[in-house]
Write a protein that binds this DNA or RNA. Structure first.
Length: 556
RNA sequence: GCGGGCGUAGCUCAGUGGUAGAGCGUCACGUUGCCAACGUGAAUGUCGAGAGUUCGAAUCUCUUCGCCCGCUCCA
């Protein structure tokens, strides 16, 4: 795998992505939203081919998750029901979920270097006394941090461990920029042994408290230059879109566009259990739009401000969390492979415990199913997150709605009332579509189009094309009959214009896996040629066999 | 949001103050008949947008919008 460089590893990454976006535009997969008005940043439209592709992805998900859910760990069929809830909900939903307060990350700017970072990712190196009594020294320096002393050096990191790594790697450079006569002699996790002018001191790496940052930003050294006096106070960036319900726009009518579909499922948990006879373990699935005011939408459709999610909330008894977490993680990874993401560009990555979201920190784990996009290579970008959300959301809604224990689930078999835990596989439909496009794209100088989209037949926007070799001698009529029959079941196209090579080339760019061509021989023996997109090979089959042929090729 | 780069036909680009162009693609007709072939013809432009300078702006200036790269964010 690693032995041969993927064609979109560093080097021609941008050119592959440029070619792909050009093809998406040219062939009608994806357009920029409101293009004739100059576009709008972070919003994308799906054209005639794109809408088929994305719909195939969502339909496959719905079929494989809701209508024909996989057997569970015990081999028994899984209980799964669908849901479709509104984008705008009572705003208390977002207070309960934590989005209203937690979804806007305070950001800090370095006024001098014009760089910005998240306030909660700022770590400081704090120095305290070194008496030799390590327990007392640690307590002393931690007390000093809590008391609000300024760090001597600052670092951007998401965890203390990462801060230690940065310090280890760049320690000398950081001290040089600060121009403090300090030396590091030892780093053990977040604790650091320092020497200041030969005098030993105990250092600790700790998050810079937000209230210190807010109150005295000028005393904190910039993580970029280690200069003081350049940082701004943390500022709020609300990532949720706001709107108003009703004609009068005041504070009381303010509402949010949902930033995730999950909360609609939690808010309907009781409705579903009351009406559908599902029993734990069971899942509720939903496909729908969500909206986030991303700081910087970029990388084609990868980070859009309006996007579509395919989410499952799977409700379980807390004791079964680990088992169901592993189950869904593996099922979802295999599913992406089953629809054509078969290369080493797809990977499953288990999160480190300390990078987990607030609701998942105590859980059985979180993992990402990731794809190596041309623009992330050699890194990966997230397609789907599988998280054990514990009972966080249901408990929050129980509290905020005032329903309390009434929102608990009564388990007949266990004779027990409890808040179920939740395993959440949450996939991005637009990101999935983009990964399928990236995976399918193949330069091929050996064919007339120069490029071919090798979609899995189940995902291909056009399943087959029907061509009369010549636009005469009764061939168009035969082709027309076949077309009219096939289109009752599949999205197929007929094309009579121009020479056959041009028509094959167009279908290569659209990623159509099979082309059926009616020729002179068809007139006498009822056979026609099937041209295979991936191999360019041709075979003859009987006209009456076409339905069988396609059914077999298109089954999951 | 900050810094850097870029916006001319569907695509790739030429055009640096004086009538908006080429190739490819698209479409029509003819011809051919299994991989963008050939001939003839046609359509297609708010030169990203707005303002300014000028007798005259695709070209110079300012503003703005969008795209790409970095920081940042994330399904």
């Amino acid at each position: 795998m690693a032995s041969h460089t993927p064609e979109h590893a560093a080097g021609n990454t941008s050119s592959k992505m440029d070619k792909l976006t050009a093809l998406c535009r040219r062939r009608g997969f994806i357009f920029q939203s409101s293009e004739i008005y100059g576009g709008i940043n972070g919003f994308w439209d799906y054209g005639p081919l794109g809408v088929e592709l994305k719909r195939n992805l969502k339909d496959a998900w719905w079929q494989d998750i809701v209508r024909c859910a996989p057997p569970g760990p015990d081999g028994q069929p899984i209980d799964m029901v669908g849901l479709d809830c509104t984008i705008i909900m009572n705003r208390k939903v977002w207070e309960a979920s934590g989005h209203a307060s937690g979804f806007n990350d305070p950001m800090v700017d370095d006024r001098e270097s014009k760089q910005r970072f998240r306030a909660d990712q700022l770590f400081g190196l704090y120095a305290g006394p070194h008496t030799g009594n390590s327990a007392a020294d640690r307590a002393a320096v931690l007390a000093a941090v809590a008391g609000g002393i300024a760090p001597i050096i600052s670092i951007i990191a998401s965890t203390g461990g990462e801060a230690a790594e940065v310090l280890e790697r760049q320690g000398k450079k950081l001290f040089k920029e600060r121009n403090v006569p300090l030396q590091i002699s030892e780093i053990a996790a977040e604790f650091v042994l320092l020497k200041e002018r030969g005098e030993p001191r105990l250092g600790v790496l700790a998050a810079v408290p937000i209230d210190v940052l807010r109150g005295r930003p000028l005393e904190i050294p910039s993580p970029f230059t280690q200069k003081t006096g350049v940082l701004t106070e943390p500022r709020q960036f609300n990532l949720m879109f706001q709107t108003h319900t009703g004609a009068v726009q005041d504070d009381s009518s303010m509402a949010y566009l949902r930033p995730e579909t999950a909360q609609g499922i939690f808010a309907n948990f009781r409705n579903v259990t009351d009406t559908s006879r599902v029993k734990i373990p069971f899942g509720i699935a939903q496909i729908g739009k969500a909206f986030r005011n991303e700081v910087t939408p970029r990388n084609f459709t990868f980070r859009s401000r309006e996007f579509e999610q395919m989410e499952i909330e799977f409700f379980i008894h807390p004791e079964q969390a680990a088992e169901w977490y592993r189950f869904w993680r593996d099922v979802r990874f295999k599913w992406w492979q089953s629809i054509g993401l078969t290369s080493a560009n797809l990977q499953l990555r288990e999160h480190d415990r300390d990078e987990l979201a607030h609701y998942a920190r105590e859980g059985a784990g979180t993992s990402d199913i990731e794809y190596r996009f041309p623009f992330t290579a050699p890194g990966f970008g997230e397609l789907e997150g599988v998280a054990h959300r514990t009972d966080f959301d249901l408990r929050q809604h129980a509290q905020f709605s005032g329903l309390g224990d009434k929102l608990k689930y009564f388990d007949q078999q266990r004779n027990e009332r409890y808040f179920p835990h939740v395993i959440e596989p949450s996939a991005g439909a637009d990101r999935g579509t983009l990964a399928i496009l990236c995976e399918a794209y193949q330069d091929d100088p050996g064919r007339p189009s120069g490029v071919v989209m090798k979609f899995h037949p189940r995902m291909a926007p056009i399943k087959a094309a029907i061509f009369p070799l010549v636009d005469k001698d009764g061939m168009p009529e035969i082709a027309g009959n076949i077309y009219n029959d096939l289109r009752k079941t599949w999205n197929v196209e007929m094309d009579v214009k121009q020479n056959i090579g041009k028509r094959y080339a167009r279908m290569d760019e659209a990623g159509t896996p099979y082309c059926f061509t009616v020729d002179t021989q068809t007139l006498s023996d009822q056979t026609l040629t099937v041209r295979h997109r991936d191999t360019l090979a041709q075979e003859r089959i009987n006209v009456a066999e076409i339905r069988n042929f396609l059914s077999k090729k298109l089954e999951p």
